[in-house]
């Protein structure tokens, strides 16, 4: 099953909401009025894309279709077009959909360091395992650094994954300064000539100052050992997250200069619409999406397809 189908599966509910509603709301031949727009607004809001994005779409619809005869196809095109535009605003990052590694800024001369951060329970460790799997499959030599020295058994969790994937892992006893784990990870990766080092970090809420400073320290330390590192700072975002995702993106970005988002848990009924809001205010693209619990369930993100899947009529 391709990722499109998987994503579609997860988004079926959204489609149902949108489609049934659109059929109820807009009928071919009717005149579009404010009531239509209001109800449509409600449905859009339920995708978590944020009031701002919804307003933009509604505004567009109002401009183009208000007071005119409803033509479903034309309305779809407007909505889709606007949404795609919102998702792509800012720096348009294009990557090759055939090459699963193309969104990553890999260091051409030597070790690439990927720092992964996010709030508690977002799915960092699982996403790291999936990413490591992707990299190993492409023939990269991967080292993991178990930087979550706080949560009980987080190190064990990543160790289990590393065994399954057959890649090296650096661990330290619980309570160790995570920066020292990151440092040791860099040392080992350089020593064994690895291609990619992925550093796991403990989940932290973006409002916890001390923990955010700790993250900043990790960020600083790895730059000392490997110049220009980290080459990628990925923030893992739970697709069920609402508007707090914005605050997460802002605060994490401030500390570790996020280069991308991994949108985890997209296989439920949640749509991860908050990424639209994030994209609107910041230049952080979604790079990967997690669509299941299995190791292969990490897919490349594609704005066009995301929107299509969100609105696909079938």
């Amino acid at each position: 099953m391709g990722w499109f189908d998987k994503l579609k599966q997860g988004l079926v509910k959204t489609q149902k909401i949108l489609n049934t509603d659109v059929r109820d709301l807009f009928r071919n031949g009717e005149i579009m009025n404010e009531t239509h727009l209001e109800s449509f607004e409600g449905r859009l809001i339920q995708t978590d894309m944020g009031v701002k994005a919804v307003d933009a779409i509604i505004e567009e619809l109002r401009k183009k279709h208000l007071g005119r005869t409803v033509q479903l196809d034309a309305i779809w095109d407007t909505v889709k077009g606007k949404l795609k535009e919102l998702l792509k605003s800012g720096k348009a990052e294009k990557w090759d959909l055939e090459d699963p590694l193309s969104p990553l800024h890999l260091n051409p001369n030597g070790l690439t360091v990927i720092l992964v951060a996010g709030v508690n329970g977002a799915g960092k460790t699982t996403s790291i395992a999936k990413l490591a799997n992707l990299l190993t499959k492409s023939g990269k030599k991967v080292v993991l650094a178990a930087g979550d020295t706080f949560r009980a058994a987080a190190v064990e969790q990543l160790t289990l994954w590393s065994k399954r994937l057959g890649c090296e892992i650096v661990t330290k006893p619980p309570g160790t300064d995570p920066a020292s784990v990151a440092y040791a990870g860099c040392e080992l990766a350089l020593e064994i000539n690895a291609d990619v080092l992925i550093i796991d970090t403990a989940g932290r809420l973006q409002t916890q100052k001390n923990l955010m400073q700790e993250l900043e320290k990790i960020h600083r330390i790895i730059a000392k050992k490997v110049p220009d590192a980290p080459h990628e700072s990925l923030m893992v975002l739970d697709a069920t997250t609402g508007q707090n995702g914005l605050s997460q993106a802002q605060n994490f970005s401030e500390i570790v200069k996020c280069t991308g988002i991994v949108l985890a848990k997209l296989d439920g009924t949640a749509k991860g619409g908050v990424t639209v809001a994030i994209r609107q205010t910041m230049d952080i693209p979604v790079k990967y999406i997690g669509v299941g619990e299995q190791i292969d369930d990490l897919q490349l993100f594609d704005a066009d397809r995301f929107v299509d899947a969100l609105f696909a009529i079938n």
Partner: peptide, 28 residues
């Protein structure tokens, strides 16, 4: 998770229908 968006209702509803919940604990 208290950070959950609009979907909070969907999952809570589904769990409630399946298990007849007695209570909710809101985290984070």
């Amino acid at each position: 998770d208290s950070m959950t968006g609009q979907d909070a209702v969907n999952s809570a509803k589904a769990f409630n229908e399946a298990l007849e919940l007695d209570g909710v604990i809101l985290t984070k």
